[in-house]
Design a protein around this nucleic acid. Structure first.
Lengths: 127, 127
DNA sequence: AGTATAGTATTACATACGTAATCAAATAAA
DNA sequence: TTTATTTGATTACGTATGTAATACTATACT
């Protein structure tokens, strides 16, 4: 029984990325990390973090006075969930249809394409 | 000078898909289409349509008493814009990183992979 | 002509999200 | 010990979104 991953908003993803990079972290750790990449006020970051906790996407350890936070789902799981709903919404359901478009519209460089060929070929055949 | 495409919400995408399928259409046409795939009330659909008009993603022809609506951007353009921001947010910017994950995690069937190989190989080499 | 009906326009209301500020409690510093 | 500082909890407020309902207006029918 896979439980549905709650939806993570754009800003919340920034927080998650910091936590996936390293966990657990205190709110202050996270604030310091994000101060480099965003111009959010500490209070803002704290709010986002609290919301992730409410959504049960982030867990809190309250044993010490200064709490520490950690992700409750792996990055891969969240990426996959987002991607599936994204592709369904935007491309009518198939990753392939998206790829076809990207390949055909020259979004991918020749190098990218070669690398993809390589990855696809490396992938072992099932039997 | 490319103008930025306004962001289209999840529900609004449903409307857009109907309009991309065929345009122009009256509000009623759209309502009928969506009544098959959703359980939205006509008024709801009308609201979504109006919002798309406000956002300048959909145009209206008011020459006749019963308006007709049509998309102001191609589906490809909107897909691409969404996809770029999506990939940046979720995968740190590269389509490739997403693909690698999907290929490695067996999300794609063997058939899909073969089809991708085919598409990639069909793609003419630039020079 | 009067009324039902179909479109359009306006208004509504709860929840999510972006972006914080204020309030309270506990610890650290003076 | 009194006070400043840090951390956590609660509250705020505008815009977007989901999901409509109500009000107005112009045809269509009786």
């Amino acid at each position: 029984m896979e439980k549905n991953i709650p939806s993570i908003s754009e800003s919340e993803w920034e927080i998650m990325n910091v936590l996936w990079d390293k966990a657990p972290q205190t709110a202050n750790d996270i604030i310091l990390s994000l101060q480099e990449s965003t111009d959010w006020k500490p209070k803002t970051i704290r709010t986002l973090l609290d919301r992730l906790v409410q959504k049960d996407v982030v867990g809190v350890n309250k044993d010490l006075r200064i709490y520490t936070f950690y992700p409750l789902y792996t990055q891969e799981k969240c990426q996959r969930a987002e991607t599936e709903s994204f592709i369904k919404r935007i491309y009518g359901g198939t990753l392939k249809s998206m790829l076809v478009q990207f390949i055909q519209e020259d979004t991918l460089s020749e190098d990218d394409i070669n690398e993809l060929r390589f990855i696809l070929n490396k992938k072992p055949k099932k039997q």
